[in-house]
């Protein structure tokens, strides 16, 4: 306890050294949108210490969960636009409007850094009566509703991937909802579900150990981490219009934050993402590092929102039309 305390003091002392007038002159609050131990949490806790070195300030990270992340977004948008509250989130807020989860999304924020994106992959239980995507499609068409797909609720990655598949292929499956991809992948190994659209990073260890079998990457090219798994476009080139697509992680501040503060944060996080240890971590987990900020990041977010909103809307799982929020249909 005592060392913890002196450690905390030492950390404070260490970080508060630069002149006080300059940002950051006090601790910065980092609101993590998802729970401790999840992908977003791990990525943020791994990159932030590197960014702190550059920033010369302490970022105190807290998990604020609930409401598919909407509670954290709402909290962060209610704070002052002074750069002392960072929102550390994933892709979900971009779907809040069409999913009827409130009217605040990343358009009320400025991206500090879009750190990385994940590659979706279709994995199956080892006992499933198919080994490739084509065999799966054939099997499902012969046995409608018998194959159980894992899901994480409407708007989650599995639902979007399933919607994407269904937009080009006729697939009637039973979607069994789970709390997150972790529990769903556990259920996949136990045979409670047959197929799971997951993030490569979350499933890669189980695939390598041969506990689940990969069917196809939802991407346009094969991935270094699993070179033998074919991209979906090999069998179905029609999916190229939607891809590349995937979940992402980013750090945001409220709109209206002074430009020099945003610049300083962006610079710090860009340096943090560049760190070799962090790059290694992202590689190991199968994430594609993006490290973009400013207009580039904004463009990425806009495109992501437009593609995905219309996809879920056309699949009939959205509550409102993207048109209502002036989200243009992708060209």
């Amino acid at each position: 306890m005592k060392t913890l305390f002196t450690g905390a003091l030492a950390a404070l002392a260490f970080t508060a050294a630069p002149a006080l007038a300059e940002y950051p002159e006090k601790e910065i609050q980092g609101i993590i949108q998802w729970g401790a131990g999840g992908s977003t949490d791990t990525v943020m806790r791994a990159v932030t210490p590197h960014a702190e070195e550059m920033l010369g300030g302490k970022v105190v990270m807290q998990n604020m969960t609930g409401g598919v992340g909407a509670i954290a977004v709402k909290f962060a948008s209610a704070q002052d636009a002074d750069g002392y509250t960072l929102l550390m989130g994933a892709e979900n807020p971009l779907l809040y409007k069409v999913m009827g989860l409130g009217d605040i999304d990343y358009s009320s924020f400025v991206p500090v850094n879009v750190i990385a994106r994940g590659v979706p992959i279709l994995v199956a239980n080892n006992d499933a009566p198919f080994d490739t995507l084509e065999e799966m499609v054939a099997y499902i068409q012969e046995n409608p509703n018998e194959v159980k797909f894992g899901s994480t609720g409407p708007g989650g990655l599995p639902s979007v991937v399933t919607a994407m598949l269904q937009s080009e292929i006729e697939l009637t499956v039973t979607a069994v909802p789970y709390d997150g991809d972790g529990p769903a992948l556990t259920a996949l190994q136990g045979g409670a579900i047959d197929v799971m659209p997951a993030v490569l990073g979350a499933s890669i260890e189980a695939i390598k150990a041969g506990r689940i079998k990969p069917l196809a990457l939802i991407d346009t090219q094969a991935n270094e981490a699993l070179p033998d798994v074919p991209p979906i476009t090999e069998a179905y080139p029609a999916f190229e219009t939607y891809l590349p697509w995937g979940p992402f992680f980013g750090v945001f501040v409220k709109e209206g934050t002074p430009d020099d503060v945003v610049a300083k944060l962006s610079e710090a996080y860009a340096a943090g993402v560049e760190n070799a240890d962090f790059q290694q971590l992202m590689d190991d987990r199968g994430f594609q590092v993006m490290n973009i900020s400013g207009d580039e990041a904004q463009e990425f977010l806009d495109k992501w929102q437009s593609v995905t909103s219309w996809l879920v809307y056309d699949a009939g799982i959205a509550k409102a039309s993207p048109e209502e929020f002036d989200i243009p249909r992708p060209e």
Binding site: L9, L12, A13, F14, A16, L20, E27
Partner: peptide
């Protein structure tokens, strides 16, 4: 926040 930062500054 400011007081803590100031204290921290003294310590360092």
């Amino acid at each position: 926040g400011e007081i803590l930062a100031w204290l921290g500054n003294l310590f360092s």
